[in-house]
């Protein structure tokens, strides 16, 4: 059990750190847009690089935040009936959903994203605009890494939900603060 909890903790801490760091790029995004507008209007300077940088930054923000958003249980649910379900039923839904829906989805995306990034790297792909940003494989690699982390977070959720079923302790449920690492038997 402590091993499982350690894994969950490690994954979720990583997701949070990556997500929080990535989110700071929003400041750079706002800055880039402003610089772009000012350069164009005050100095008649249109930089394709800066326009492309905008979606690159935005993409990094999204991909780095996916996992932590999941960890905080912030992906929206239709709770019409969900709220009325027992703790056990909810945990079963998470276990089955993660194993048969989420993981197949994210694992296939991760694998394909890896081939996309690798192929792009092999070609040295850049922007189709001659003066656009070079190294498009960077953002494709970020897509791969973001999905990989998203998948890891899914594994953490799976372990959490199994722990809920095994121990009946709701603190193991997705989005909850984990109990201190103590033998499972201590909990009612």
């Amino acid at each position: 059990m402590p091993v499982a909890v350690t894994v969950i903790r490690a994954v979720e801490r990583l997701a949070t750190v990556v997500g929080r760091l990535g989110s700071l790029l929003l400041i750079a995004l706002v800055g880039t847009i402003l610089v772009n507008i000012v350069l164009r209007y005050a100095f008649n300077l249109g930089l394709i690089e800066l326009e492309e940088l905008q979606w690159h930054l935005n993409a990094v923000v999204v991909m780095t935040a996916l996992a932590a958003t999941y960890g905080e249980d912030a992906h929206v649910r239709v709770d019409l009936f969900h709220d009325g379900f027992s703790q056990r039923s909810k945990a079963w839904i998470e276990v089955l959903g993660t194993a048969f829906l989420f993981l197949p989805f994210v694992v296939t995306l991760t694998l394909h994203a890896w081939s996309m990034a690798a192929y792009s790297w092999q070609l040295g792909e850049g922007s189709p605009m001659p003066s656009g940003l070079p190294a498009r494989y960077v953002v494709k690699f970020v897509m791969f890494a973001g999905f990989a982390l998203f998948g890891l977070q899914g594994v953490a959720v799976l372990i959490r939900s199994i722990l809920v079923l095994a121990t009946g302790d709701r603190r193991y449920a997705i989005g909850h603060a984990l109990p201190e690492t103590t033998p499972a038997g201590d909990h009612p």
Partner: peptide, 22 residues
Amino acid sequence: AVLFTGYPVAMALGGVGILFAG
């Protein structure tokens, strides 16, 4: 069916899609 279990919407859409691809 998955949607009304309360499983996250985005993952229900993606997961059911992948299952049916399989």
